[in-house]
Nucleic acid binder design. Structure first.
Lengths: 170, 170
DNA sequence: TCGGAATAGTTGAGTACTCAACCTGCGTTC
DNA sequence: GAACGCAGGTTGAGTACTCAACTATTCCGA
């Protein structure tokens, strides 16, 4: 590996600002959701994915994929959500190994109850702070960052796959 | 509270992209740092803050503030870093309650060892993916998001303070 | 100079995540 | 049709974080 390309002063500032923004923003989002809906943002997202599906059901594996999570994470998460009565696990028809997570009525109700407050937070701390041009830019920037990582993910099994440059000297 | 201002389709897309990007990106950063430097990104940041200080030392409280963490988090984190021999805690001169965290030589060495690989990841997955204009935009966007949240933070004690709109009906 | 209130930091219980090991059922192949 | 490997999912140990309760020191007012 060739000499490290350190960050310029400008890049440093941008990097720090990005770190601060994401840390503060997601901290706020998570905190509010925990307070008002008794669930972390990750669980909220699981409920959202299920609710967007025609029959409010998704195989565990697909749930993991669409949530960009590991199987293990989803398994633990759904176990919790099941305890709360918001999700139920059923054996999947065709495949004896497969399970589907089903959003219960109570889960849908919890989601509907949580949504307005959550959306309001996202607006207040993200969209309301940005000009329309900045919103558009953020969308493009996010896609530019996400796309290659999504691609890299699907190349291996469970995320993230460590087959990257190692940082050793040449 | 008035009717929920739901997200438009465009905003939805942006929001999802932003979620995906941050989740994938920080997942990658954290994973690589854990693998190559045996520390999570949060701990790396602590070492960085200490290293940037003239005497490689910072009061616990100041460390919490500059890291945008809670006291508790820093306390736990420094305890860990102390076990690893990367940081030492000393009584602070003037104030009998105060403690300073001091970056040890070994800690500085660990930081120096970790830095190139880490910076390389940040470049590879962030700066290299963006045009200069996008980098500039990201800096401004990040500041626009971070600034109000920083301000809100200092208004109360430990972050984040829940004194926000509650999401109840009016 | 005594007695609170505020400040600095720690502690412990509970929660969410990661990684690796592990079942279980499916599908081949011979 | 038995044995292999593999895909789908779970499990448990270990780690990082949060929140609330706590200790210890300092500040301040009468």
């Amino acid at each position: 590996m060739r000499r490290t390309r350190w960050l310029s002063a400008d890049e440093q500032r941008t990097w720090r600002a990005f770190l601060d923004a994401t840390q503060l923003f997601f901290g706020q989002i998570d905190h509010q959701l925990q307070l008002q809906a008794k669930m972390p943002h990750a669980y909220y997202e699981v409920l959202v994915r299920l609710s967007e599906t025609p029959l409010r059901r998704l195989r565990m594996g697909d749930l993991a994929t669409t949530s960009l999570s590991s199987k293990s994470r989803i398994s633990h998460a759904v176990a919790r959500l099941e305890e709360a009565g918001w999700v139920r696990r059923e054996r999947s028809g065709g495949d004896g190994r497969g399970l589907v997570a089903v959003l219960t009525d109570s889960g849908l109700a919890a989601l509907r109850a949580a949504a307005p407050g959550h959306v309001e937070q996202v607006r207040a701390h993200l969209f309301d702070r940005l000009t329309p041009a900045q919103v558009a830019a953020l969308g493009e920037i996010s896609e530019a960052i996400a796309a290659p990582l999504r691609a890299g993910r699907s190349a291996c099994g469970d995320p993230p796959c460590g087959a990257e440059r190692t940082g050793d000297d040449a």
